[in-house]
Simulated scan of single mutants.
Amino acid sequence: MTTTRLTPATAALLTLPPLLWAGNAVVGRMVTELVPPLTLNFLRWLVAFAILLPLGGWVLRRGSGLLAHWRRFALLGLLGVGMYNALQYLALHTSSPVNVTLVASSMPLWMLALGTLFFRSPVTRPQLLGALLSMAGVAVVLARGDWAQLARLKLVAGDLYMVVATISWAWYSWLLARRDEPDAMRADWAAFLMAQVVFGLGWSGLLTAGEWALTDARIDWGWPLAAALLYVAIGPAVLAYRFWNLGVQRAGPAVAGFFGNLTPVFAAVLSALFLGEAPRPYHALAFALIAAGIVASARR
């Protein structure tokens, strides 16, 4: 049986995206009154495209291999750029950042299920143990240290949107582990992400057009929205995707999925800070359980 080596450097790579994505959920919630959710996703990736253009724009040239592998990048763009983020912003209109990230923390289970069903990746006992420990950490955050809170939990439409989003992200992560594109494109992270964003903009553009045609969409331009767009484009988009892609290549999709459970912990802390409240002791307990799940999942 092959093993997955989780080094400190790889763990750091996979920890940064959940932190940035937690901030993405908080910021997305803050601008719900300023911009429609699908439009926010399109604008986010439009800014990211402008950032990536001088770094990996060569992939748009003829002979780069993009057209030869357009099906792969069209699917990656749909799952990772078009669907996941659009559904998350849509979910934030009816659900809180903590709830949204908590639903997304079911990622390890979807990772293991998709890996077994479609990618011939057997589930090991350490991975099951890691999933249980990580989900226990999520439950601690969900209960806020009081288990009676779980009995009063109510799911809303946003939570269901996040279930679909999480499945799409799990599928996206497994596809990242497959090396079907030219080596030059895989070696250049900006070009590899640019290839996904090009098609992702097409998908998100179609969704945005539908949003404006079917709803009374409007945008309130100003410095708050501009600052939010810069953050969600630079941090959760460009930097987080770079770190996540590299981490998945090093540790594998199944192990990487466990790091997603750090997102609700970070979201709870960030939400508490924005509300002027200090982090609670149960946040530390949840972090310890999730970290234990990560370590257990990477063992032989």
Rank of each mutant, 00 (worst) to 15 (best):
residue 2 T to A: 15
residue 3 T to S: 15
residue 3 T to Q: 12
residue 5 R to K: 09
residue 7 T to R: 05
residue 10 T to Y: 07
residue 12 A to V: 11
residue 16 L to W: 10
residue 16 L to K: 07
residue 17 P to I: 04
residue 23 G to I: 00
residue 23 G to C: 02
residue 25 A to D: 09
residue 27 V to R: 01
residue 31 V to W: 01
residue 32 T to C: 02
residue 33 E to F: 08
residue 33 E to Q: 13
residue 43 L to R: 00
residue 47 V to M: 10
residue 48 A to F: 11
residue 54 P to T: 00
residue 56 G to A: 04
residue 58 W to G: 14
residue 63 G to F: 00
residue 64 S to L: 06
residue 67 L to C: 12
residue 69 H to P: 02
residue 72 R to D: 11
residue 72 R to Y: 12
residue 79 L to V: 12
residue 80 G to P: 00
residue 85 N to A: 06
residue 88 Q to K: 10
residue 88 Q to P: 14
residue 90 L to C: 06
residue 92 L to H: 10
residue 94 T to V: 12
residue 97 P to Q: 04
residue 99 N to Y: 04
residue 102 L to G: 05
residue 104 A to I: 11
residue 107 M to Y: 12
residue 110 W to K: 04
residue 112 L to F: 05
residue 114 L to Y: 09
residue 114 L to W: 08
residue 121 S to V: 13
residue 121 S to G: 14
residue 130 G to H: 05
residue 132 L to T: 14
residue 133 L to W: 04
residue 134 S to I: 00
residue 136 A to R: 07
residue 137 G to S: 12
residue 138 V to I: 12
residue 139 A to C: 13
residue 140 V to S: 02
residue 142 L to D: 13
residue 144 R to K: 13
residue 146 D to P: 08
residue 147 W to A: 15
residue 147 W to L: 15
residue 150 L to C: 15
residue 155 L to Q: 13
residue 157 A to S: 14
residue 158 G to P: 00
residue 159 D to L: 06
residue 162 M to F: 07
residue 168 S to K: 02
residue 169 W to Q: 03
residue 169 W to L: 02
residue 171 W to D: 07
residue 172 Y to S: 04
residue 176 L to A: 04
residue 181 E to R: 01
residue 184 A to P: 03
residue 185 M to S: 09
residue 188 D to L: 12
residue 189 W to Q: 11
residue 190 A to N: 03
residue 194 M to G: 11
residue 204 S to E: 04
residue 207 L to G: 13
residue 208 T to Q: 00
residue 210 G to M: 07
residue 210 G to V: 07
residue 213 A to D: 10
residue 215 T to R: 14
residue 216 D to Q: 10
residue 217 A to W: 00
residue 219 I to F: 07
residue 221 W to T: 01
residue 222 G to D: 15
residue 222 G to A: 14
residue 230 L to K: 05
residue 231 Y to V: 03
residue 234 I to V: 15
residue 236 P to F: 09
residue 238 V to R: 01
residue 240 A to G: 02
residue 241 Y to H: 12
residue 243 F to S: 05
residue 250 R to C: 09
residue 254 A to Q: 15
residue 257 G to L: 04
residue 257 G to A: 05
residue 259 F to Y: 02
residue 264 P to N: 03
residue 268 A to H: 09
residue 271 S to Q: 07
residue 274 F to K: 12
residue 275 L to Q: 11
residue 277 E to V: 13
residue 281 P to K: 05
residue 281 P to W: 04
residue 282 Y to A: 03
residue 282 Y to T: 02
residue 282 Y to E: 06
residue 286 A to Q: 09
residue 291 A to K: 09
residue 296 A to H: 08
residue 297 S to Q: 06
